[in-house]
Amino acid sequence: MNYNKIIKYGLTAVISLAILFFLQRLLVPKYVDDIVEGAFVAEYYEEVKDHDVIFVGDCEVYETYSPLVLWEEYGINSYIRGSAQQYIFQSYYLVEDTLRYETPDVVVFNIQSLQYDEAQSEAYNRMTLEGMKWSKTKVDAINASMKEGEQFLDYVFPILRYHTRWSALTDADFQYLFDKKKVSHNGYYMRVDVKPAENVPEGRPLGNYAFGENAWKYLDMMRELCEEKGVTLLLVKAPSLYPYWYPEYEEQVEAYAKEHGLRYINLLEDADAIGLDYSVDTYDAGLHMNLSGAEKCARFLGHVLSVEYGLEDRRGESALDASWQMKKEAYEAEIAAQKIKYGIEE
């Protein structure tokens, strides 16, 4: 092959790959303006990895605790690695992934996802897995999560998954083509609006309340991994009124925690102690906490972490102070912006 041909074919390959790369960037969802939950997992990698507490779990975790309150009131540097309908096997791999970068003192796992033995939705898989950086952990997480019909290659080349999104592109897809704005506050998803919880339905009787083998397996794995790395595992249940948390579920978690010497806190039972008022502390009628509820829950959990677990108050560390000061400004700016958005008066 002569020199000219090498140049010709080389240039062809470069142009083709550049076009494909550009198209892929354009077509993948940006999770910036609408469904922001898909952006949370990736934002962790932009952080300085020096956290005392890492939260993992589903929406109940990223909407229930304000890391800013944990910092401001207890000096606890925390990050929420939550994502929409995060399954327990994904929580496990997110813990494993976190431990590649840092070793927190405490991992807080929201046990709501124990009821799912396998992935329920490809869309939710995507929102958790796409944001993870490539590693063996991510490969394992994908393999553990894929539903029937999903293909591993679609995760490697997301253009194969989102190839039809060209008909649904918005301005945001072009605006955030190469650089995205942050949408969470250390993984916390803020909502300031209020929708009181009224007429919360009782749960329908189930045929089987037992958590599945797979769920238990990954909880065991998470516990063992934390033990191996010297990390304290704390099990929590967020104070969401529904999906209904059955007493049979509660018994199983309590028994597990007792058997393995783990602390388990069901915030539903501590609602009074937390000071929760479901007429003002939720934005979707009891499903998720709003800012007010999240700050109350953070205050409550911060006390546990600080007093019972003896986590050090790190306020005064100049790098962290500076970092949290910037985060606080962003936090307050969003509160102001959301109040305007939802028409909430000061």
Partner: peptide
């Protein structure tokens, strides 16, 4: 190149495949 890479892109972006 434009013809065949264009056809490839049509299949890639408009093909009925995947999830």
């Amino acid at each position: 190149y434009v013809m065949f890479f264009g056809l490839f892109l049509i299949v890639l972006l408009m093909g009925a495949y995947g999830v």
